[in-house]
Nucleic acid binder design. Structure first.
Lengths: 153, 153
DNA sequence: GACGGCGAGTCAACTTGTTGACTCACCGTG
DNA sequence: CACGGTGAGTCAACAAGTTGACTCGCCGTC
């Protein structure tokens, strides 16, 4: 383990994703990536491709390529809306909604249980406060000027 | 912003990476991915490909494919060691070491400055303590049984 | 009512990583 | 000394994203 917070954050996120992926594979036969797409859609539906891409942190081309398969497997619906240019309205099907609800609930519960596990009792984590701190930090980074000049290189 | 800690962590890491990438591109003309490879090597050199791959969280094939270009551009050296099977010993060149030292120092400083910025003074972040908490949490997740059964699906 | 612009989606080429099969160097054991 | 095993690296095929150029609806202006 590292003493550098940035490294620790990367490791933590990697472990979280690996754990979620294993749970999702075992319980529902889907990958974390698949779940994440549906979960973000769940929070924003109905939504067009470009907006969803921004929420997912990928390009619209990446979303565009995944949509046909997700529609074909009955997870989502895609409908072009007359009078709205080429905009396509994405929504979850009942199957997709059920996955996000069920799996999401289990994952939330697992994670909450980890945070309060006795083995971390030496210095317990105050999740709501931590979340608020990290949200503030994230927002602050976002509004940072793009980069420092190479003042010493 | 989300009220879910796992989402917040993903967003924070994405912002950190984007910030570091912009700073590295502006100051040294390299990507964050490139820097990360060298920085992890810096912490472990000399090291063989398989070990480095594990430290980077990628497969050994991915490392194997990147090495020739990195050697060609003078960032690292790769030497097969007689009497050690096919093991290849990777090390940083002087150029690679200088990049990690200089850019790493700047990034560390930038990040530390963010953590102590007045705009976060409402609920300041205790970095060493937070790091210790997250390290403990990461270790705990790592040793979790692979997955819960689909007890309610 | 044609013209130009804009925003949303799509496509082709490329990049980076994964998987599983393979090669090769060494090390035992018989 | 041959023989099988093991661990490290490599290769080919595939998967998922990015970029930049493109198409297509719509909307404004002349």
């Amino acid at each position: 383990m590292s003493d550098r917070l940035t490294f620790t954050l990367h490791e933590l996120v990697a472990e979280l994703d690996a754990f979620a992926d294993a749970a999702l594979q075992a319980g529902w036969g889907v990958t974390f990536n698949h779940f994440q797409f549906l979960a973000v859609l769940y929070d924003h539906e109905p939504v067009d491709m470009t907006t969803l891409a921004r929420c997912l942190g990928v390009t619209k081309a990446a979303v565009s390529k995944r949509v046909p398969a997700l529609v074909g497997d009955g997870w989502i619906t895609a409908a072009s809306q007359p009078g709205q240019g080429r905009s396509i309205r994405l929504s979850l099907t009942e199957k997709g909604t059920a996955l996000v609800r069920d799996a999401g609930e289990v994952l939330e519960r697992e994670f909450a249980a980890m945070l309060t596990h006795p083995s971390l009792a030496g210095d317990p984590i105050d999740a709501p406060r931590l979340n608020a701190q990290l949200v503030a930090l994230t927002a602050f980074i976002q509004q940072q000027p793009t980069a420092p000049q190479e003042t010493l290189a």
